[in-house]
């Protein structure tokens, strides 16, 4: 194709159309996610269930972690094996705030947000020098050091973790939600996770977001260390909202399945692209991935105690056969259906 003004305009139009179609596809999936969650909440509330509420709440919280991993892996191509570190850190900070300082949801979430962002900067500063597998290993090593350190610190409850975290009430000014109420807590979590999703989706559309993608597409962007530092800070920032977990008991053991979870979730969701800047990633896949995986684990776990064999096999199959994951599989099909004609240019990416 000759590089004439006309072709340039044509390409730009096609790219813009493609991006709109992508956004539409994501929007449809995200909307469907909320709708499904609300239907579930209605059914579960009507049948007076608690367990499935707790499970679903957990799935949503994991979806938050999965989005965080996805932000790094999906957009910048950095595989963090140490994401459980931020997850556990958030849980511990919010537990400490609630227990020793103030049993306020907003205090916990605010302090956790600030502390996690700070930790993200520190971890980013340490990990910033490493690339590719070295980045994966350094994050893994960091998480191990912190895990062992917490495990050995008796002031933090050592191997028993922190117990006796107060049950709190989430104040929204006009109304409030008791965190111990399964329905209320589920809805609060849903709102927070979807806000997180919306914020990240918006962030990815800003010039900063495009820069993140550019880092992956064009490794020469590495020459801009300041930008990269900013990107890593964002890596820390996405750990906001971890305070929701206040109700649960942080135990160091959590860090281990956490590693598996963090590494596994985005995969079922979606993974890998070939580094084309126009190729958008689908954060929404992380939402579905987390829910599918949590559900699968629970269902298979009741059939057989050897559920890890099945989960592991599914995991491997999805790496081999669905490297783009669930969203990567569904979205092009959705796009073709809802916005015919717009799919083509981006497909070649």
């Amino acid at each position: 194709m000759a590089d004439t003004p006309a072709t340039r305009v044509a390409v730009r139009t096609a790219v813009a159309a493609n991006e709109r179609a992508d956004a539409l596809g994501d929007g449809v999936l995200a909307g469907a996610f909320v709708a499904l969650a609300l239907v579930f909440a209605a059914v579960a509330a009507a049948s007076g269930d608690t367990f499935f509420f707790r499970l679903a709440t957990e799935a949503l919280i994991l979806a938050g972690v999965a989005m965080a991993v996805d932000l790094l892996l999906g957009y910048t191509g950095l595989l963090s094996l140490g994401h459980a570190l931020f997850f556990g850190f958030g849980a511990y900070v919010s537990a400490l705030v609630l227990k020793h300082w103030s049993p306020s949801f907003w205090a916990a979430i605010g302090v956790t947000f600030a502390a996690a962002a700070l930790l993200g900067v520190v971890a980013g500063f340490i990990a910033i020098r490493a690339r590719g597998v070295y980045f994966a290993l350094i994050t893994f090593g960091l998480a191990q050091v912190v895990f062992k350190a917490v495990y050995n610190t008796r002031e933090l409850g050592g191997s028993d973790g922190i117990i006796g975290i107060p049950q709190i009430r989430v104040e929204f000014g006009l109304f409030s939600v008791q965190a111990s109420s399964p329905l209320g807590f589920f809805l609060v979590t849903l709102v927070f996770v979807m806000l997180l999703y919306a914020a990240l989706a918006w962030l990815m559309r800003t010039p900063f977001g495009r820069l993140l993608v550019a880092i992956r597409a064009n490794e020469s962007a590495r020459a801009l260390p300041g930008i990269l530092a900013l990107a890593r800070q964002a890596g820390g920032l996405r750990d906001r909202g971890r305070g929701r977990r206040a109700l649960r008991q942080p135990v160091p053991h959590a860090a281990r399945p956490g590693v598996a979870g963090a590494a596994g979730l985005p995969d079922i969701g979606q993974r890998r692209d070939h580094g084309h800047p126009r190729r958008r990633r689908h954060l929404v896949g992380a939402l579905y991935g987390a829910v599918i995986l949590t559900g699968l684990k629970s269902v298979i776990g009741t059939w057989t105690e050897h559920h890890l064999i099945i989960i592991g096999a599914l995991f491997m199959l999805s790496v081999i056969f669905l490297p783009k994951g669930f969203a990567g599989y569904v979205l092009p099909r959705l796009r073709r259906r809802f916005a015919p004609g717009a799919g083509k240019p981006g497909e070649g990416a």
Partner: peptide, 21 residues
């Protein structure tokens, strides 16, 4: 694939989970 570092890491990680069980 271009991401063979990460894909093989994840693949062998899955294999480890299966083997242990």
């Amino acid at each position: 694939t271009k991401d063979r570092h990460i894909l093989t890491l994840l693949l062998t990680f899955g294999l480890a989970i299966i083997a242990e069980d």
